[in-house]
Simulated assay, not measured.
Amino acid sequence: MPAPSAPYDQPAGARCDFAVHLEPVVDEVMTKVLATYPDGSTKREAYVGDLVFRVTNTATGASVDVDLSGNAIVAYQPGGTLITNSTWYLVGPAMFGFKEGGGDHPRGLWVFDGVYTVAFDAVAYKTVTIYHGTERNVCDDLS
């Protein structure tokens, strides 16, 4: 089933020092539920497909297209969501926003690529474990 991404905005200071607009320019991501809990809620699901986001510094107009076409399996704890009580198992590029104090990385729009996990706790604190790969803060590309 398609899993479309919506454009969104982040004000200055939320992820980057400046306001950013993020918009998908290629979005062919599909999702499939792989397992459910007895109550029917999702236990595990897969995400695959091409995804490219354009990230724009709205103050300067500078933009960068970011390939986020990684593959993911998301495992949910009971009652979990994509950003709480879940663990993402990823291969390939994906981007995660970090607010100040919101995870084990400084504030920014971080692109991870390789083999890694991103674990979300009950309050959406993110912990990234990179087994093999790279990371970069897209905010630095647009400064």
Rank of each mutant, 00 (worst) to 15 (best):
V48A: 12
L51V: 09
D39M: 14
S63T: 11
A46R: 12
L82I: 08
G61Q: 01
V74Q: 10
D67W: 03
I83Q: 06
Y37C: 10
P38L: 13
L68G: 09
N57S: 00
G80N: 08
V33L: 05
A35M: 14
G49P: 04
A75P: 05
K32I: 11
A75G: 09
S69P: 03
L51I: 10
K43A: 15
V66S: 01
T81D: 02
R44C: 12
P38A: 15
N57E: 00
N71P: 05
M30R: 12
T42E: 13
M30V: 12
L68I: 09
N57H: 00
G49C: 02
Y76V: 02
E45R: 15
K43E: 14
V55Y: 05
T60F: 01
Y76Q: 05
D50H: 10
T81H: 04
A75F: 05
A75C: 06
E45P: 08
G70T: 00
Y76S: 05
T60P: 09
R44D: 13
D65G: 04
T42Y: 07
L51W: 02
Q77I: 08
D67E: 05
A62D: 12
T84E: 04
S63Y: 08
T84W: 01
K43C: 12
T36I: 11
G49F: 00
R54C: 07
A75E: 13
P38Y: 05
G61S: 04
T56L: 02
M30N: 14
V64P: 10
A35R: 15
S41E: 13
A59F: 02
D39V: 15
T56N: 04
G80S: 12
G40E: 13
R54A: 07
G80F: 06
L34Y: 05
I83K: 07
D67F: 04
A75H: 06
T84M: 03
S69M: 03
R54D: 07
Y37R: 11
G70L: 00
Y76D: 02
T84D: 01
E45S: 15
R54G: 06
M30L: 10
A46E: 12
A62C: 07
V55F: 04
V48N: 10
S41K: 13
V55L: 07
Q77T: 11
R54L: 05
L34G: 06
